[in-house]
Design a binder for these strands. Structure first.
Lengths: 148, 148
DNA sequence: TGTTAGATGATACTTATTATTATTCAATGA
DNA sequence: TCATTGAATAATAATAAGTATCATCTAACA
C-alpha cells in the first residue's frame, strides 16, 4: 500500500478513508487547522464525514504521536502533523499560527527539568505578535486586548 | 485606601468588593486557579458573587495587565496574578501548574522576532511532565495519553 | 446628596468537545 | 473469496466553558 496506510497500521490503527483524508490534509498544510476547519475542508471530497469522526481521529493520531495538539488560547484546539516539538508564533491580528525553529530548545527542556524537579515530557513554546503581512497592512494593534 | 484599591483606580477600574476579593485571592495563591476555582473559593466569604462577574473581572484585569491568562490545554483558562511573563510547568498527573524561572527568556523573545519577522508581544512557555510529588508517589505515567 | 457610567447578578445562549449507540467496514483467517 | 469480529463511523444528544443580555445596584464625582 502507500506510506500513510503502512504508518497507520504500524501504529496499530485501522486504515480508513477518513483517516487517510485527515492525515493527508494535515500533512499538506502549515495552517494548523482546528477540527472544524478540517471538517469544512474535507466536506467537498468526503461529504458524509462526521465531525465526531474528525475529533476521534485527531485524538487517536495524538495518542500514537502522529499529530500534536496546540492550545493557543483561541477556545479550540489546533493540529499540527509535525512530530517533533517546535515553537509556534500566533498573529494576534489575523490569528495565523506559524511554525518556526528556535536554537537550543533541548537546553530549555533540560533547564526546566533542573529548575523544577519535574520529569519533563514535552513543551509548548508559544509566542504572540503581529505577523509581517499584518504589519505591512498597517494593522499594528488589532487584538491588543480583546476587551478594550 | 489600600494598595490594591489604588492600583485598580490607577488602571481606570472601579473598586468593588468583588474585584478586591478576586485580586486578593489571586495574589495569595500560586495554584493558577480557573474562573470556576475562584468562584468556589470565594463562595464562603462572598455568597452572592456571580460566576459571570468572575469572568468579566478576570477579563478586565487581563485587559489592564493585572493578571495573565494561561491556556495549558485543559479546556479552561487559568489565571496568574504575576505580571511579568515567565514559564509554567504542568504536571500531567495531578494537573498542577507551577511557575518557574528560565534564564535568557528575553533572548528567546528576540530570536523569535528575528526568525519570523513578527513584532513579538508576549510568549507563553509551557512544559509538561511529572511533578516531584507524583514521582515520589510512583505515579510516573498518569496521563501519558488520555485516550489510551 | 444626587447623578451617572460602569459593575453586578441572574440567566439565557453559544460553541467546542465528548458520550452514546446503531450501523458499517477493515482486518484476519478458514 | 467469504464470514467473522472488533474497531470505526455517522448521527445526534449531552456536557461544560465561556459570553451576551438586561434589570438592578453602586462607586465615583460633582
Amino acid at each position: 500500500m502507500n506510506d500513510i496506510a503502512d504508518m497507520l497500521r504500524a501504529k496499530g490503527l485501522k486504515v480508513t478513508p477518513q483517516r487517510l483524508a485527515i492525515y493527508q490534509l494535515l500533512c499538506g498544510t502549515t495552517t494548523h487547522p482546528s477540527a472544524e476547519d478540517i471538517y469544512k475542508a474535507l466536506m467537498p471530497t468526503n461529504p458524509t464525514i462526521s465531525l465526531a469522526t474528525i475529533y476521534k481521529t485527531l485524538d487517536s493520531f495524538r495518542s500514537v504521536g502522529l499529530v500534536q495538539e496546540l492550545s493557543v488560547g483561541n477556545g479550540r484546539s489546533n493540529y499540527d502533523a509535525a512530530v517533533h516539538t517546535h515553537p509556534h508564533i500566533v498573529c494576534t491580528c489575523c490569528n495565523a499560527i506559524q511554525d518556526f525553529h528556535l536554537e537550543h530548545v533541548e537546553a530549555l527542556h533540560q533547564e526546566a527539568a533542573e529548575k523544577t524537579g519535574y520529569v519533563v515530557e514535552r513543551e509548548q513554546l508559544l509566542f504572540y505578535g503581529i505577523c509581517p503581512a499584518c504589519q505591512a497592512a498597517g494593522k499594528t494593534n488589532c487584538n491588543p486586548e480583546p476587551k478594550d
